[in-house]
Nucleic acid binder design. Structure first.
Lengths: 241, 241
DNA sequence: GCAAAAGTGTTATACGTACACCCATGA
DNA sequence: TCATGGGTGTACGTATAACACTTTTGC
């Protein structure tokens, strides 16, 4: 007999930095330490529903559109209270402002991922490991899915989208080539016809995230090249033993 | 309080077909039906160790080098006996021959994945869903990791490796281009100097799987292009709700 | 007009694809 | 010497990267 919990790694790009939503623990163990929002799964509750509920209850933030199971953490000694298995979820949100709603949400706030990853001891339980796995998953998915759009509000400019990639990978992208790439990627973006105003320079067009994929022709995948990892061999660390 | 189990999706390429290792259930529920090997996690046992143990006990097959957590399945009604959460693992093996060892292994055998996916009702519990997820993960990982080598024995020819891709994706690859691609991919393969014999035609060189990645220069990832999914938008189904 | 950001055009290069061709072996 | 599969050379099309250039706004 085990306790089963869920933990939510809710990531965003905020103030030009990659950030994660954390709560301060109000009781033992790890009282006063930062932790991922999460808690026990109820007996008739689906795992993903539990994750959404805990996020809402502990931080006052309604779960965003993108919520995906990350992995399950079950080392026998991971919780001093007893054998606990935790199913971690990855949530991707646009910048939602301060986290100030919710009942237990007093201590919920955003924190920079880079600082948390530099020092494992800042987080309770094995949450530093979970965070590191979540970051790796999110960075990876930017490469081959339209995940970046989920870091943006419903309507956004190409430059905002570009800044997501630039922040997550800490590099500069050529605005011209980036613009062409994303606007030409089939099904990736939808024009709204509107344009942003207020900033300096020529106003940018506003776009919306493209179709969910279901309503697209799903172009024949190009498996011809076999996708051997040429540039960076073995980059996506598989768990070999 | 939940029961926690592990299930193992052990995949291989065998007789020119993509196959999975299954057992026949010896008791209720789903008595007599095919199921993934698996069982209850012990109280002081790590999840992955449990998976390896169950694979060995139920099929007589020692877990291969590649074992990776797949996902966790926890719908409230997935097991008629009570609330059970199952952590599924993906294992990739070379063709290991018949499954005939182990105590409970009498009923363990390899089955064609394509047939199982055509009819959900062939497998016990939600194992058809787990299998489908495993297949998607394995196909996906072929694209950007050296996973294909794990479907081959320790030493293999380029043609054997090519047949893995051809079987998994059901297509024909140009042997010439494939050869160049994998032999030039840095760190992907290591020459053994030996060559295969026995077959018709010019004997092929034998290769071994390349470094684990840790001992490689880990070439600068080429994030320049941002990896928008051009050819096939939104192919890797993210769990949007 | 000037600065700044959006967006387009142009070109060199790299990579994938197709396919002709040579190599090494068994029968 | 012929058939078969292993392996190399080469030409061509397409995608990317770099960067010059035009457009549209606020000041």
């Amino acid at each position: 007999m085990f306790s089963v919990t869920v933990d939510v790694v809710c990531l965003t790009v905020r103030d030009g930095a990659f950030q994660v939503l954390l709560v301060e623990r109000g009781g033992p163990p790890f009282e006063g330490r930062l932790a991922l929002p999460g808690g026990f799964v109820q007996v008739d509750e689906n795992l993903e529903d539990a994750a959404r509920r805990e996020l809402r209850e502990e931080t006052g933030i309604e779960a965003p559109r993108f919520v995906e199971q990350l992995a399950t953490y079950g080392e026998p000694d991971r919780d001093p209270r007893g054998r606990t298995v935790s199913v971690a979820f990855l949530a991707i949100a646009a910048d939602l402002g301060e986290a100030t709603g919710g009942s237990d949400a007093a201590a919920a706030d955003w924190h920079r991922v880079d600082e948390l990853l530099r020092d494992d001891s800042l987080l309770a339980f094995d949450h530093a490991v979970i965070l590191a796995d979540a970051v790796e998953r999110a960075r990876g998915k930017l490469e081959y899915t339209p995940l970046a759009c989920d870091f943006c509000p419903a309507e956004f400019t190409i430059a905002e989208l570009r800044r997501v990639y630039e922040t997550m990978w800490d590099l500069r992208l050529d605005p011209a080539n980036f613009h062409r790439k994303v606007t030409r990627a089939d099904g990736f973006l939808v024009e709204t016809g509107k344009s942003a105003d207020g900033g300096v320079g020529r106003p940018a067009q506003l776009y919306r995230r493209g179709g969910s994929g279901a309503d697209l022709p799903a172009a024949e995948p190009r498996y011809d090249g076999v996708g051997v990892p040429l540039g960076s061999p073995c980059r996506h660390g598989a768990s070999y033993s």
